[in-house]
Computed example of a mutant assay.
Amino acid sequence: MCGSSTPPAAPESIPPTAGSRPSRAGSPATTPSKSTFPDHTDQSPGHPRGKEARTSTFAVLAHYRVQPGRGDEVAAALRPHIVATRAEPGCVGFTVNRSADDPDVFVLYEQYHDSNAFQAHVDSRHYQDYVARRVRPLLADRQVSFYTTVEP
């Protein structure tokens, strides 16, 4: 588990350099607006924990294919980013996986309390420093998908 239960306030939308939907070679990745992200609270008055009970988390799955031979540089840039992200109040979990078969392939699995917590993550200084400025220039391909967890 990461952080506390109260997510930070977030700006209105994810900037163009933030997480993106799958992109095709030669075309820029697109980013959904904040309104695309679902609300993860149960608003029904009969819910046992009340109006603000959390029913799922906001999950992000990012696939990175790094430029050939640059995987070690990406791994080095992601290590301090992992520590900083896990300390965010809205972070539920943040795992970086590196392919056992191809050292230039990474899969990031991220969970946040809600889309506002994800937005705060994207706007954070460490995201801009490590991901936007150091990791992205080394990527050959990047695909990002957004999910909600399925709860019993």
Rank of each mutant, 00 (worst) to 15 (best):
67 Q>I: 08
59 A>Y: 00
53 A>I: 01
68 P>F: 14
55 T>Y: 14
68 P>Q: 12
52 E>F: 11
62 A>R: 08
58 F>M: 08
45 P>W: 03
59 A>V: 05
70 R>I: 02
51 K>N: 11
48 P>C: 01
62 A>C: 13
69 G>E: 05
67 Q>S: 13
39 D>P: 02
52 E>Y: 10
41 T>V: 10
57 T>K: 04
55 T>S: 09
40 H>L: 15
45 P>K: 06
40 H>T: 11
65 R>K: 12
59 A>E: 03
45 P>H: 05
43 Q>A: 14
38 P>F: 10
67 Q>D: 02
53 A>Y: 02
59 A>C: 14
42 D>Q: 08
46 G>D: 11
56 S>F: 10
50 G>S: 10
56 S>A: 15
39 D>K: 12
58 F>C: 04
63 H>C: 09
60 V>L: 15
43 Q>H: 15
57 T>V: 10
64 Y>D: 00
57 T>R: 06
69 G>Y: 10
67 Q>V: 07
67 Q>W: 02
37 F>C: 13
63 H>M: 11
37 F>I: 07
60 V>W: 04
38 P>H: 08
59 A>T: 01
68 P>K: 15
39 D>G: 09
52 E>Q: 12
63 H>W: 12
68 P>N: 11
51 K>Y: 14
40 H>R: 10
57 T>Q: 04
48 P>I: 01
41 T>H: 13
53 A>G: 14
63 H>Q: 12
62 A>P: 01
58 F>A: 02
69 G>R: 06
70 R>N: 07
55 T>F: 14
63 H>G: 05
67 Q>K: 15
60 V>E: 00
56 S>N: 13
69 G>F: 15
64 Y>L: 06
54 R>Y: 02
39 D>S: 14
47 H>D: 04
39 D>V: 07
68 P>T: 08
57 T>S: 12
69 G>L: 15
53 A>R: 05
67 Q>C: 04
58 F>P: 00
40 H>I: 10
63 H>T: 09
65 R>S: 09
43 Q>G: 13
63 H>F: 12
46 G>T: 06
46 G>I: 02
46 G>Q: 08
60 V>G: 03
60 V>R: 02
42 D>C: 14
65 R>A: 12
43 Q>C: 06
50 G>D: 05
41 T>N: 03
61 L>Y: 13
56 S>L: 04
55 T>V: 03
